[in-house]
Computed example of a mutant assay.
Amino acid sequence: MSQTQQHPQYPPFQPPQQPQQQIARNGLGTAALILGIIGALSGLIPIMFWLAGVLGVVALILGLTGRGRAKRGEATNKGVALAGVILAVLSLGLAAFGAYTTFKAVGDAVDEINKSVSDTKAKDTKTSGDAKDKGTSDSGTGEKSDEKPDAGKALEAGDSVVYDDDLTVTVSNAVAYSPSEFAAGHTKGNHAYKVTVTVTNDSKEKFDSTLLTADARAGKDGVDAEQVFDEKVGTGFDGTILPGKKATVVYAFDTPAAAKNLTVEVTPSFEYDATQWDLKL
């Protein structure tokens, strides 16, 4: 009788398992380095201080976070993150310096402009401390008078004022005016009067007439005389006046019915002193 020999059973062969490798999270450190470089380069231009500051703050946050990952073994670019942090700090320093330089330059420019305007006014002011104009007047004959008018007294209708740069302003007498039905600035029961303002440019440079303003007060109480606007009056001066040329504009003002005089004040621009004319109504 034969016996059947049985062989032991072995489990199938399995290769040893390799430990799973963790993927390095290097993105924050790399981003910190890139933003730090851009921020530092932007900081080299003072006027770009704002961009350097923003990028510096972002790069600093990303760089510190990237270094934290590297310390925990989640990233392998600890040096890159450190470089990003250093460049971020450099960007912030350049941003602070650029802001100081920019604001200081703007402040110096404003001070220089104010000083220039003040010097111009001081140079053109009369030695007596009166208005800037020479004060030569014109009684309507077309010839300039050598007599200087009293700075505390308004000019009369038809008189002219000649400024130091030979810019001449003349205001005519006040003439009754009937505003149109759709006129603005006219109150029912009031009287409207029109005056003609003529600017003659005898200087060597063109004059920007758009800055000229004309205002008025009426009566012994000096109430504001509102300017009237309709299709005929109220447009004001426009454009420039070339040397040797003149421009004329008609203004209309609304006055109380009982007003006996109209004081018109004309200012050619902020570089000139205002001059007043006292017109009889």
Rank of each mutant, 00 (worst) to 15 (best):
A31T: 13
A32N: 09
L33P: 09
G36R: 09
I37G: 05
I37E: 02
A40H: 06
L41R: 14
I45S: 13
L51T: 15
G56L: 02
V57A: 10
L62Y: 00
G63K: 00
L64N: 03
L64S: 14
R69D: 14
A70P: 07
R72D: 09
E74C: 14
A75S: 12
T76V: 06
G79F: 10
L82Q: 11
G84R: 01
A88T: 02
A88Q: 04
V89P: 00
S91G: 00
A96M: 13
A96G: 12
F97D: 03
T101V: 08
F103M: 03
D108K: 12
D108T: 05
A109T: 06
E112A: 15
E112C: 01
S116F: 02
S116P: 02
V117K: 11
V117M: 10
D124Q: 13
D124A: 04
K126V: 09
K132M: 15
K132W: 09
K132V: 13
D133F: 06
G135H: 06
S145M: 02
K148Q: 12
P149Q: 01
G152Y: 01
K153H: 04
L155D: 02
G158M: 01
G158T: 07
D159M: 11
D164R: 15
D165E: 05
L167P: 11
T170L: 07
S172A: 10
V175M: 11
Y177F: 15
